[in-house]
């Protein structure tokens, strides 16, 4: 069976664990060269090696996505390594939990810096490369928090909410360059982040079980569930879909 991301080059931020890692591995299996990004160098190098051992193309780049200059350097690195960039997956995210009146201003700034500015920076520096390549796709990893609140997640929800109109703007303005932009919006997915997230809930001990009961399909999502949706949006399978957001949440938002 032919690989559907053959000749594509993807940058996936925050891909040293969780959903980002699953997306990087899935894209590499489908033929894309992937830039793995995070701040954990050891973990990133290990994923790079494993992908290469399996016959894929991968390169780790250590960068803090809340730094515009580091993101710009990462995009240049991707071009140096793989000669072009065609897929952007801004995925890195942090929680910054606490009551709106109690989190520090630093926490607010840091959360918005990673979750919103980090996405913007990758688009800011990555989109010109997509244009140079003749087109491409942007798959923003948002969240169901783009549409609903969670207790003590003010910075997280605000930052994720902002990603949907940002995505729609990119879809509108860059369609003429043969670039599509869409958002995936995961619900409860079994990643390291979710176990930190539940600590902010008043019913932290039981919330995961209760959440499973709130899904239509009776389980937590897996990082692979999210990677499959990312693959759909990154590939020609969704060639007439742009400006769309899709929740991958087992039906919580119904």
């Amino acid at each position: 069976m032919s690989k559907i991301l053959e000749n594509q080059v993807a940058i996936i931020t925050g891909s040293t664990s969780g959903m980002g890692e699953a997306i990087a591995r899935r894209f590499a299996k489908q033929g894309a060269a992937v830039v793995i990004n995070g701040t954990n160098e050891e973990r990133g190098k290990k994923i790079e090696e494993e992908i290469v051992q399996e016959g894929g193309k991968a390169a780790f780049y250590k960068a803090d996505v809340s730094s515009a200059s580091e993101v710009e350097a990462m995009v240049d690195f991707a071009v140096e390594q793989f000669s072009k960039v065609t897929i952007l997956v801004p995925n890195a995210g942090i929680l910054g939990n606490g009551l709106a009146t109690e989190i520090s201003l630093e926490t607010w700034d840091k959360t918005l810096g990673v979750n919103l500015n980090g996405v913007y920076y990758l688009c800011r520096y990555g989109l010109p490369k997509l244009i140079e390549a003749g087109g491409g796709t942007v798959v923003i990893n948002a969240s169901i928090a783009s549409f609903k609140s969670f207790p003590q997640h003010p910075a997280y929800c605000a930052s994720k909410g902002a990603l949907i109109p940002l995505m729609k703007n990119i879809a509108q303005d860059y369609a003429e360059h043969n670039i599509r932009a869409n958002a995936i919006c995961p619900g409860p997915v079994d990643t390291p982040l979710i176990w930190d997230s539940v600590k902010a809930f008043p019913n932290a001990d039981s919330i995961i079980d209760e959440t499973i009961g709130m899904t239509c399909v009776g389980r937590l999502g897996t990082p692979d569930d999210v990677a499959e949706a990312a693959l759909f949006f990154a590939s020609d399978q969704s060639s007439f879909v742009t400006g769309a957001s899709l929740t991958i949440d087992g039906g919580i938002m119904t």
Binding site: A175, V217, S238, V241, G243, D249, G250, T254
Partner: peptide, 13 residues
């Protein structure tokens, strides 16, 4: 398999 209750707009934006 983890997507349900959703509508995908296929409309060129």
């Amino acid at each position: 398999d983890y997507v349900t209750g959703q509508v995908v707009c296929c409309d060129g934006g």
